Measured scan of single mutants.
Amino acid sequence: NQASVVANQLIPINTALALVMMRSEVVTPVGIPAEDIPRLVSMQVNRAVPLGTTLMPDMVKGYA
């Protein structure tokens, strides 16, 4: 199964993503693939992302 990017902490709106904020986990539904974690670093989220939430492409500015 494909691992997705999951929030490792609460990520406030407009926060630039850092490695420590993300982990990979096999979840349903599938979100952003875990292999894209390096690409996500320094991109901003466009909403608050609670701990344990799967990151979806529409949550990250400039990802989709």
Rank of each mutant, 00 (worst) to 15 (best):
N1A: 15
N1P: 15
Q2I: 12
Q2K: 06
Q2G: 15
Q2L: 15
Q2H: 12
A3N: 09
A3V: 09
A3M: 15
A3T: 13
A3W: 11
A3Y: 09
S4Q: 02
S4K: 01
S4Y: 03
S4P: 02
V5M: 01
V5N: 02
V5H: 02
V6R: 01
V6W: 00
V6D: 00
V6H: 02
V6L: 07
V6T: 06
V6E: 01
V6C: 04
N8F: 04
N8P: 01
N8I: 07
N8V: 08
N8S: 13
N8W: 04
N8Q: 09
Q9N: 08
Q9H: 08
Q9G: 05
L10S: 14
L10E: 15
L10W: 13
L10I: 09
L10A: 13
L10F: 14
L10K: 10
L10M: 10
I11V: 06
I11C: 03
I11W: 02
P12Y: 05
P12W: 04
P12E: 12
I13H: 12
I13S: 14
I13K: 11
I13N: 15
I13D: 11
I13F: 10
N14S: 08
N14T: 05
N14A: 08
N14C: 15
N14M: 10
T15M: 09
T15N: 04
T15K: 05
T15E: 07
T15C: 06
T15D: 03
T15Q: 09
A16D: 06
A16R: 10
A16P: 11
L17N: 02
A18T: 15
A18K: 11
A18N: 11
A18P: 00
A18W: 04
L19S: 14
L19Q: 07
L19K: 10
L19T: 12
L19P: 09
L19A: 11
V20E: 14
V20H: 14
M21L: 05
M21G: 03
M21D: 07
M21F: 06
M21Q: 05
M21W: 04
M21I: 03
M22C: 03
M22S: 02
R23E: 12
R23T: 07
R23P: 03
R23C: 09
S24W: 10
S24N: 06
S24G: 13
S24P: 14
E25P: 00
E25Q: 07
E25G: 09
E25F: 05
E25A: 08
E25H: 07
E25R: 05
V26F: 06
V26D: 15
V26G: 04
V26K: 05
V26A: 09
V26H: 10
V27E: 02
V27F: 03
V27L: 05
V27K: 08
T28M: 08
T28P: 02
T28V: 12
T28F: 10
T28S: 13
T28Y: 14
T28L: 08
P29T: 05
P29H: 04
P29C: 05
P29Y: 03
P29R: 04
P29A: 04
V30R: 04
V30K: 06
V30C: 05
V30E: 15
V30T: 10
G31V: 02
G31A: 02
G31N: 01
G31R: 01
G31Q: 02
G31I: 01
G31T: 02
I32N: 01
I32K: 01
I32T: 02
I32Q: 00
I32A: 00
I32L: 05
I32H: 01
I32D: 00
P33F: 11
P33T: 06
P33D: 06
P33A: 11
P33H: 12
A34Q: 05
A34D: 09
A34F: 06
A34Y: 10
E35Y: 09
E35P: 07
E35L: 10
E35K: 07
E35W: 07
E35Q: 12
E35V: 09
E35G: 12
E35R: 05
E35N: 09
D36L: 14
D36Y: 12
D36S: 14
I37K: 05
I37F: 03
I37A: 08
I37E: 01
I37Y: 02
P38W: 07
P38T: 10
P38G: 13
P38Q: 11
R39I: 09
R39N: 09
R39F: 11
R39D: 05
R39Y: 06
R39C: 15
R39E: 05
R39T: 09
R39G: 06
L40M: 07
L40V: 05
L40D: 00
L40N: 00
V41L: 15
V41M: 05
V41D: 03
V41C: 06
S42E: 12
S42G: 15
S42K: 11
S42I: 03
M43K: 07
M43D: 02
Q44T: 15
Q44I: 14
Q44E: 12
Q44P: 08
Q44A: 14
Q44D: 04
V45M: 05
V45C: 05
V45E: 02
V45D: 01
V45S: 05
N46K: 10
N46H: 09
N46E: 07
N46V: 11
R47Y: 13
R47H: 10
R47L: 08
R47N: 07
A48W: 08
A48L: 11
A48H: 13
A48G: 07
V49C: 05
V49R: 01
V49H: 01
V49P: 01
V49A: 04
P50F: 08
P50K: 09
P50L: 11
P50M: 08
L51P: 15
L51K: 10
L51A: 15
L51Q: 15
L51D: 13
L51N: 10
G52V: 00
G52D: 09
G52K: 04
G52M: 05
G52Y: 05
G52R: 04
G52T: 01
G52C: 04
T53A: 12
T53E: 08
T53M: 12
T53Q: 13
T53P: 01
T54A: 06
L55S: 02
L55H: 00
L55R: 00
L55E: 00
L55P: 01
M56Y: 07
M56T: 14
M56E: 07
M56Q: 11
M56K: 08
M56C: 13
P57I: 04
P57G: 07
P57F: 06
P57H: 12
P57Q: 09
P57N: 06
D58T: 09
D58K: 08
D58Q: 10
D58I: 07
D58H: 09
M59F: 13
M59E: 02
M59I: 06
V60T: 02
V60C: 03
V60L: 11
V60W: 00
K61V: 13
K61G: 09
K61N: 15
K61E: 11
G62L: 10
G62R: 08
Y63K: 04
Y63V: 04
Y63M: 06
A64M: 10
A64H: 12
A64E: 11
